[in-house]
């Protein structure tokens, strides 16, 4: 039987697990502010809230409740991020999101490898993450930092200038839209049959078979071998 290798530690899995529902809460509660297209969310929540609070306006009641959920989720996510960020900062230079090779040619090669794997279904030697996953992780980290900073600026907007608050509102929306598009790709690939082992490792076991890593994540396998972790 193949040896089990820990690919996601408990802190990473705990953070990701709770990140899923907190991001879901933040997205659902933020969308009606972004666009009237999502007013139905506020109306849906507004009906029971208005009935309970004896409010005359369903949309306002729903939006106020959504704002409470948005602020609470943001606060919880901030708390949750503390140990994760602490862990990440300690090994910042060795994160999987950094490219194994830098430069334009390396990037092109990375995407060629992805093309072979996802389109041609050929065998490819990836690191722990492929080029797309690395790019995704970098964009998500940047957008989440912008979202957090601009979000807190908006919560405490009375302490900053009106112009700065307007910039924060725009930055919050723009970074969310970029984050949202990345999230759709991430969700699709997370549940894609080819990534079942990664899904199981993140949500259930935290581990992958040594043979699987050797076959599908050859560069990562070599790295683990070099570091005497296998």
């Amino acid at each position: 039987m193949s040896k089990k290798i820990v690919v996601y530690n408990n802190v990473e899995r705990f953070f990701h697990y709770h990140l899923v529902h907190l991001v879901a809460f933040l997205t659902i509660s933020g969308l009606p502010v972004l666009s009237h297209t999502f007013d139905f969310i506020a109306y849906g929540l507004g009906i029971p809230v208005a009935a309970l609070t004896n409010s005359q306006n369903i949309l306002s009641a729903g939006m106020s409740a959504l704002r409470f959920i948005h602020y609470s989720s943001a606060f919880l996510l901030t708390l949750l991020s503390v140990p994760f960020v602490f862990m990440i900062v300690r090994k910042i230079a060795h994160l999987s999101m950094w490219p194994d090779r830098w430069g334009v040619q390396a990037t092109i090669d990375g995407f060629k490898e992805m093309w072979k794997f996802y389109i041609k279904q050929e065998h490819v030697r990836f690191g722990k993450m492929n080029a797309g996953q690395k790019l995704f992780a970098q964009i998500v980290v940047i957008t989440m930092i912008v979202l957090a900073i601009s979000g807190y600026m908006l919560i405490f907007r009375e302490s900053i200038s009106s112009d700065l608050a307007t910039y924060a509102r725009a930055a919050h929306a723009i970074s969310f839209i970029i984050f949202g598009m990345m999230l759709i790709i991430h969700l699709y690939l997370a549940v894609h049959p080819t990534n079942k082992n990664s899904y199981d490792a993140m949500f259930h076991t935290g581990t992958m078979d040594e043979d699987f890593i050797k076959e599908h994540h050859g560069i990562y396998y070599d790295k683990l071998k070099k570091e005497n972790k296998i």
Partner: peptide
């Protein structure tokens, strides 16, 4: 407000982009 105009433009790009991604 240029920054709010940018927000509106990105919303349009985001809507089209999200549909394209799905």
């Amino acid at each position: 407000k240029l920054v709010m105009s940018a927000r509106e433009a990105v919303k349009v790009v985001g809507s089209v982009g999200s549909v394209a991604i799905v």
